[in-house]
Computed example of a mutant assay.
Amino acid sequence: MAAGIFPPRRWYGLLCLVLGASMLVWGQTVLSTRLQGKTYIIYWTVCFLVTSLALIFALWETRRLRLKLHEEEKALFREMVRQIEQARQQKEEQQNPKTAPLKPSAKEGIPSEAKPDS
């Protein structure tokens, strides 16, 4: 995967998840005999914190995606309304060509009698 595909927060979440899973496997297999007393408490607390951090990153990313989706839906809705309004106006102009507003050109904007003398 290229680095530009995912934002850094996803990589941090993945790193925390892999680290937490690795700590779980190592703590249950290789380090099980060495973890006693304070080291046991510290090791599993760190494992819990790393896993919790992965969860926080996942929730943060979910929130960001929901906000982005909401913004895209709003933009899509605005575009749809704009297109419907344009289609309605075009239909009205086709049905009533005489009542369509005419836009005056730059030359037609001021009548020749009303032009100020220079």
Rank of each mutant, 00 (worst) to 15 (best):
T33C: 03
Q86S: 10
G20M: 02
C16Y: 03
D117G: 11
E108V: 00
I5Y: 14
L65C: 01
R64N: 14
R64S: 14
W11G: 04
E72K: 12
S118H: 13
W44E: 06
G109W: 15
K98H: 09
A54V: 05
P104S: 03
A106H: 10
A21G: 06
F48P: 05
A87M: 11
M80T: 14
R9C: 09
S112K: 11
L67C: 08
H70A: 14
N96C: 00
G13C: 07
T62P: 00
S105R: 08
W11A: 07
H70Q: 12
G4F: 09
T39W: 11
G4T: 13
W44N: 05
C16N: 09
A106R: 12
Q83M: 08
I42P: 00
L31S: 01
K98V: 08
E85N: 15
A2P: 13
F57N: 10
A106L: 14
L17D: 06
R82L: 10
Q36N: 13
A87T: 01
Q36H: 06
L49T: 10
K38E: 02
Y12S: 12
K115Q: 11
N96V: 02
L19E: 03
E93K: 03
L24F: 14
F77Y: 13
T51C: 05
R63I: 12
P104T: 05
A21R: 00
L55Y: 06
F57W: 11
V46K: 03
W11P: 04
L53C: 13
Q90D: 05
A106G: 09
P101K: 02
L24V: 09
K98A: 07
L55S: 04
A58D: 04
T29D: 08
R64P: 00
L59N: 15
K74C: 15
L24T: 07
Q28V: 11
Q28F: 11
G4M: 10
I5V: 15
I110H: 02
H70I: 04
F48E: 12
I5M: 12
R9A: 10
Q95I: 10
A2E: 06
Q90T: 03
K103A: 04
S105A: 05
Q86P: 04
L76K: 13
T51V: 10
K107T: 11
T33A: 13
Y40L: 14
T39A: 12
M80F: 12
E113Q: 15
G13T: 01
C16K: 05
A3V: 13
L67F: 09
K107I: 06
A100I: 04
R63A: 14
G13F: 04
P7K: 13
P104C: 01
T62N: 14
K68W: 11
L65G: 00
A100Y: 06
E61R: 02
W60A: 00
E71M: 13
G13P: 00
E108K: 09
K74W: 11
R88T: 12
A75R: 15
H70N: 12
L67T: 06
K91M: 11
M80G: 10
